[in-house]
């Protein structure tokens, strides 16, 4: 604290320094999050997010919210506890989407020529806004986990549907019924990813028939709550200010 104050000699200068620290800090926070959250995302949800023919009603809906609630839960602790700022989840997902779009545009399209229509990322901003607002209004991590985590899981599928729906239009393709997404995955050859690797529409939810997406979403929401708690403590451990105090 003393180091921070003695660095500036007048009040005007102090404000200026403080603002510079803000901009630098925001930039660093965004970049660090973009990088680390993106690596985490690729290692956990990978193909489910890379390809439109993996975005199904069961596994995509289930896997993506669960593995993505991690960083938001951790960063919310840091920003809320230390600074009373309720945009931890939002800054995470914006960083992730920024990184994903760079990757999809320059690597998938620019380097390998997969069309964007096959490999755009999932939409996760709506859930992050809800997660942040619940924390702001309740000021409680328990409520954020339960209400926010639930909202995060439940809004994922409807939040993506305006983009995904047109890919589920049926096509009769040389005598076989296929969705537009299936045809895209079939047409644009992924030599290293044979069809049987694709994990979609698998599971034991057959009894729910047509309404499998809401069931998957509820399951995902419950799991998101649990993972939120887990990563909340990861966030606590990371947001220690011991080092800052030492300087």
């Amino acid at each position: 604290m003393s180091a921070l104050q003695s660095a500036a000699s007048s009040r005007a200068e102090a404000i200026q320094v403080s603002r510079i620290v803000d901009y630098l800090g925001l930039f660093i926070l965004f970049m660090v999050l973009t990088g680390s959250y993106h690596i985490h995302a690729m290692l956990t949800m990978g193909d489910w997010d890379f390809w439109v023919d993996w975005k199904d009603r069961r596994l995509w809906v289930t896997v993506v919210p669960i593995v993505l609630i991690t960083f938001p839960a951790a960063v919310q602790v840091l920003l809320w506890e230390r600074l009373r700022l309720p945009w931890g989840a939002t800054v995470c997902v914006l960083g992730l989407l920024f990184g994903e779009w760079i990757n999809r545009y320059f690597n998938f399209w620019g380097w390998t020529y997969f069309p964007i229509t096959l490999c755009f990322p999932s939409q996760i901003v709506p859930g992050a806004i809800l997660l942040d607002v619940v924390l702001l209004l309740s000021g409680s991590y328990l409520l954020t986990a339960i209400v926010g985590g639930m909202a995060w899981g439940l809004i994922f599928y409807p939040g993506n549907w305006p983009v995904i729906a047109p890919y589920h239009v049926p096509v009769e393709y040389n005598g076989t019924l296929m969705s537009v997404a299936d045809i895209l995955g079939y047409n644009y050859v992924r030599t290293g990813t044979p069809e049987y690797i694709r994990m979609v529409e698998k599971g034991t939810l057959r009894t729910f028939g047509k309404d499998v997406a809401p069931v998957s979403a509820f399951f995902s929401a419950f799991m998101s709550i649990l993972i939120y708690f887990l990563w909340h403590f990861v966030g606590r451990w990371f947001s220690t200010v011991r080092f800052l105090k030492a300087t």
């Binding site: 970049m31 660090v32 973009t34 990088g35 680390s36 993106h38 690596i39 690729m42 990978g46 890379f50 990184g99 760079i102 990757n103 320059f106 690597n107």
Partner: peptide, 9 residues
């Protein structure tokens, strides 16, 4: 990190 992550895959 950002660079590594975007060129990672």
């Amino acid at each position: 990190l950002a660079f590594a992550a975007t060129s990672f895959y």
